[in-house]
Design a binder for these strands. Structure first.
Length: 502
RNA sequence: CGCGGGGUAGAGCAGCCCGGUAGCUCGUCAGGCUCAUAACCUGAAGGUCCUUGGUUCAAAUCCAAGCCCCGCAACCA
């Protein structure tokens, strides 16, 4: 039987940026998908990394009196350390300054040049000396740019326009390629206009911190042309063809801000290289802080580390995954976080585990009771439980993590109702085995939910499954072992008490 | 101007494609239970389903017009 493969990427983040909740979100999402697919037995590869070239890095390094590379080396751990803290299970971490990447970018430039898809031309446009970049007419009119003058410059261009029709057809023929759907429409709308060519060079006189263009030493390549290639350089394009063939094409998770770069620049580059296009490009929304966008000037940037310190990694992962649905924007507020945490994790999931294990301790000597012959009430739980795995799998394969989590919580809610109806604490007085049967059913449902929550909350779930004595159990009903001693344990997700404002 | 998405209880959303008692989570209120992390369960209140008109026995759902919100509008080289 052929194994499915799953190659998922995050964007490579700009090394100069301070990591914020948005970076954390994309990376956690990728991690959750990767963990799910690994659990499903798919041949999985999960890549993230850093974009380290460009003007901002050069300038920031100069300011600090450091070589750009040194500057990057200093800053890179801000991301890689955060990923460790967040429990990110990436298989590789690529930095665009690494030799393995630089050589592939240069080889690709040569190849595309040889294909005739790169040409040189002189460009004349409005240039802001203060900003050190060309600006559009609109921007010039806005008056926000100083020292604007007309500048002529020779540069290299990539023939994006050549691939336009092919790209349109591809997007139309592959409905799941750009997700969610409305983003696909946006891109098709964008492509209705004639596509220009992409300038892919910078004269070294203006910008030296980049990858040198092999056929013209006076230039470095444009950061995006450099950066996008990470998705294939990291898995061995032109270096380890077996690995490359094993994993390419990828699923790219990106923020909606860089949809054009991915669905237009990157795809036409791949066309030129005669490589398959990505399996999917998924653009998620922004995290809004209350009503406004997160921004440094507003001082409302959420630092993931603060949250984790207060409430733990798993809770933060769960919150981000459950609160953001598909491609829309989501609202981040501490109040929301606490509500979600208390109702789902503390009151429903954590508390259910507590009541079940408490009853087992009290009435069954702490030993997991026999499953017995299910009553019709038990059977309802079993049916939901059995159906849950496939349901969740389908949702995850469709990138609907929030819906998958909701399905899992629905089982938990159902079990709470079932407990109430069966009242094993009463049953124990008249029919101990029947009470045991109910508790077995409830605990087994809990175990099953835990297994499905593993990708989102790896640490807590590991604890739960250890407590239940079935660390490596899977998704079939009945893997919970009777006769095993349930140890005592502190509440899994202690409620967050909020002082009410008077 | 253009293209795309949306407007459903206090909040966040589902339902709309394939018309027929308007549903879920959170919040509020009342009750129950007492195994549990003041948790859990039940019930209630709360909706002109943006507006207007049309089709139909029947429209949140289909059609038309309008209002409002949001996204895209590259060539930021």
């Amino acid at each position: 039987m052929k194994r499915n493969k799953f190659y998922v990427t995050t964007p490579i983040y700009y090394v100069n940026d301070a990591p914020h909740i948005g970076h954390a979100y994309t990376t956690i999402l990728a991690d959750v998908l990767a963990r799910f697919h690994r659990a499903l037995g798919d041949d999985t590869f999960f890549l993230t990394g850093l974009d380290e070239h460009g003007q901002k890095v050069q300038q920031a390094a100069e300011k600090r009196g450091l070589a750009p590379k040194q500057h990057c080396d200093d800053l890179a751990p801000r991301f890689s350390d955060l990923w460790k803290t967040l429990g990110i299970s990436n298989d590789d971490f690529i930095r665009t300054t690494e030799a393995r990447h630089v050589s592939v970018v240069q080889a690709i430039l040569q190849k595309v040049h040889a294909n005739g898809d790169i040409y040189q031309k002189e460009y004349e446009g409005l240039y802001s000396v203060a900003e050190e970049r060309f600006i559009t007419e609109k921007e010039a009119e806005s008056g926000q740019f100083r020292e604007v003058k007309t500048l002529k410059e020779k540069n290299y261009f990539f023939k994006m326009s050549k691939h336009q029709d092919r790209l349109i057809k591809y997007i139309e023929d592959n409905p799941g390629f750009i997700r969610p759907e409305h983003r696909k429409n946006e891109m098709l709308g964008f492509l209705r206009q004639p596509l220009g060519d992409l300038c892919i060079s910078r004269p070294k006189a203006r910008l030296s911190w980049g990858i040198e263009i092999p056929f013209d030493r006076d230039y470095v390549t444009y950061v995006w042309f450099d950066a996008l290639i990470n998705y294939i350089s990291a898995i061995g394009y032109m270096a380890d063809e077996d690995k490359f063939k094993r994993f390419w094409p990828a699923v790219h998770l990106i923020g909606k801000d860089i949809l054009t770069t991915h669905s237009i620049y990157w795809t036409t580059m791949l066309f030129s290289l005669d490589l398959p296009l990505p399996e999917a490009i998924f653009a998620h929304g922004w995290w809004l802080m209350g009503e406004s966008k997160m921004s440094k000037s507003l001082g409302n940037v959420v630092r993931p580390l603060d949250l984790i310190e207060q409430h733990g990694v798993d809770a933060v992962r769960y919150y981000l995954m459950s609160e953001m649905n598909l491609g829309s924007d989501a609202n981040f507020t501490p109040e929301n976080f606490i509500k979600r945490y208390n109702s789902d994790l503390a009151n429903d999931f954590g508390n259910l585990l507590n009541r079940v294990s408490g009853l087992i301790a009290k009435n069954h000597g702490g030993i997991i009771p026999e499953a017995g012959t299910p009553s019709s009430a038990d059977e309802e739980v079993v049916v939901t439980g059995r159906a849950l795995g496939p349901k969740v799998e389908a949702l995850i394969r469709d990138y609907k993590v929030d819906e998958a989590l909701n399905e899992i919580m629905n089982l938990i809610r159902q079990v709470n109702k079932y407990m109430e109806a069966q009242a094993p604490w009463k049953l124990a007085k008249t029919d101990l085995p029947a009470a045991g049967r109910v508790l077995y059913t409830a605990t087994e449902a809990l175990r099953l939910s835990a297994v499905l929550l593993k990708a989102v909350m790896p640490t807590k779930v590991a604890t739960v499954l250890e407590i239940l004595g079935v660390a490596d159990s899977g998704l079939s009903w009945g893997e919970l072992k009777s006769g095993v001693l349930l140890p005592a344990f502190p509440p899994l997700f202690p409620r967050i008490e909020v002082e009410k404002k008077v």
